[in-house]
């Protein structure tokens, strides 16, 4: 059985697709067969971030409507043989998604994939609720500012009440906090919420902090998941996150200003 991970936030522009691409690649690099699905029907982006936009023939909605098989629609990544991408449709809207259709796809993928990463669209409407409905784990991507935190809080409420697990009375979805676009300098100036502030409001397990970084934009522009940029801070942050999710105990980085970060990195303190 595959583990289904939803990457969600409520608010737009916080880094859901960047995160989906990075962690899917990270899991595949660890040797796990991974599929990543773009649920943002009508505003397809994941294929760009993954650098496979020119190889899209069939999409999620085609598979739901039985116009193509899952194998026809899945795009195999050129950099990692364990990674497959299921793109969204650009010519339809989210009403084309049906619960039964999504369930069928996830069931079929579960047979031979270890992890399925669902890249949720922004908002709390159909695409977003379907992306999280069947999830086992939720990565809640939040920026350190009040509106993003409140939207994440709302999303957490929906995760705990409107998922399949909640409706069947099963063990609830495991929720993890990913704090993205974090800038310790701006936190110090009081322009951003700190890790502690966000955690106090959301009371959620912190999986990792991703620093604000130029490398993210560069990676998106070149169609390379940022985790492959091993020199960059954001790439390393995502590598840590994937390792922690897989059970490794790694200290948190990028929370303090540059010097402190380097210090704790060199000496492995905290």
């Amino acid at each position: 059985m595959a583990r289904i991970i939803v990457v969600t936030s409520g608010k737009g522009g916080v880094g859901k697709t960047t995160t989906s691409a990075a962690i899917a690649m990270g899991l595949a690099k660890h040797g796990h067969k991974t599929a990543v699905i773009d649920f943002d029907v009508g505003l397809r982006n994941l294929d760009l971030i993954m650098g496979c936009e020119r190889r899209v023939v069939y999409d999620l909605v085609n598979v739901i409507n039985n116009e193509a098989t899952l194998n026809q629609a899945l795009i195999k990544d050129k950099r990692c043989e364990n990674l497959f991408i299921l793109p969204a449709s650009q010519t339809r809207d989210k009403d084309a998604l049906t619960t039964e259709g999504v369930e069928k796809i996830l069931e079929e993928l579960s047979k031979d994939f270890k992890y399925i990463v669902c890249d949720s669209p922004a908002g709390i409407e159909r695409g977003a609720t379907l992306a999280m409905y069947f999830a086992d784990d939720a990565f809640v991507v939040t920026n350190p500012e009040v509106s993003s935190v409140r939207d994440s809080d709302r999303m957490l409420g929906i995760l705990s009440s409107k998922s399949r697990r909640a409706e069947n009375g099963e063990e609830p979805i495991k929720e993890y906090l990913l704090l993205s676009r974090y800038s310790p300098e701006r936190v110090k100036l009081g322009e951003m919420l700190s890790v502690e502030d966000v955690q106090e409001i959301l009371s959620l397990h912190l999986l990792g902090v991703i620093p604000e970084s130029k490398s993210v934009l560069n990676a998106s522009n070149s169609g390379t998941p940022v985790i492959l940029d091993e020199q960059s801070d954001a790439g390393q942050a995502y590598a840590d996150i994937v390792a922690r999710y897989l059970g490794e105990d790694r200290p948190h980085r990028f929370i303090d200003e540059k010097k402190g970060g380097l210090f704790s990195k060199l000496f492995g303190s905290k």
Binding site: D153, R154, L156, G157, S160, S161, I201, S203
Partner: peptide, 26 residues
């Protein structure tokens, strides 16, 4: 026993006891 998240509503016909946080917007 779980946090009451933004957008959630809880109604009790008697007393209501919450042993977690009640978020803004809840």
């Amino acid at each position: 026993t779980l946090p009451v998240r933004s957008g959630q509503r809880v109604y009790a016909k008697g007393d209501l006891i919450v042993i977690a946080t009640v978020s803004a917007g809840a």
